[in-house]
Design a protein around this nucleic acid. Sequence first.
DNA 1: AAAGACTACTGTGGAAAGCAGAGTACTCCG
DNA 2: CGGAGTACTCTGCTTTCCACAGTAGTCTTT
Lengths: 111, 111
Amino acid sequence: MDVSQLLKGVLDVAVLAVVKDEDGYGYDVLRRLRAAGFDEIGDASVYGTLRRLYLNGSLTSYVVPSDEGPHRKYYAINDAGRTVLEESIKTWRGFADSIDQVLKLNREVAA
Amino acid sequence: MDVSQLLKGVLDVAVLAVVKDEDGYGYDVLRRLRAAGFDEIGDASVYGTLRRLYLNGSLTSYVVPSDEGPHRKYYAINDAGRTVLEESIKTWRGFADSIDQVLKLNREVAA
DNA sequence: AAAGACTACTGTGGAAAGCAGAGTACTCCG
DNA sequence: CGGAGTACTCTGCTTTCCACAGTAGTCTTT
């Protein structure tokens, strides 16, 4: 099974969730996602997702110069993005439950 | 969030899991998946997935005439398919855990 | 018997999204 | 000065789901 196919559609939520905690720039979001278990994720996927979320109005953006390298393009979540995130979490939950049912994995929401 | 995007890559496992329980033909697999919660799944997706799994050697196939309509093309899982299914379940589990972690959903495998 | 509904499958073409690869550019270290 | 690490952009490829169209069989209803 190809993990990159599984990411389709889910990357949006993952990126929104990560940015919701704290504003982030592309390279940083990439590191945070890799640390969370998406270790094979491609950089272009993250940059592309951030751009897409910015273009559809879920994120705002600002540039900050850096002493340790090139400038950083920060992204921050806004109200629209928070709404999308909440809806997406519900969708994900229902979807994951259906899969677990078919695979007969008994998972429960613990908290 | 678009459910059809979430299906990418996962449909393979879902179909394998459904067919593993009992041999099935396309229209029937479609109904079983819809009953499991994938109520918006397109028929062409299921037929396409069955064809793909057959071509890559995970399923075998045989035709059975029917009294209630056109003939039925049954698919059965084989050893290769079972191996793919087991590997895919592991991949799914790891993937879903990563998502849950990022979304801060505390799920646990109960049994 | 014609019309419609349900069953059952095939094939084509389109769209979305992840990703590889190439390119740009800045900083720091040896 | 060259290499490594950081940081981003852009183009084009690939996979996969799906809408749509078409074929074809059975059964019910009018």
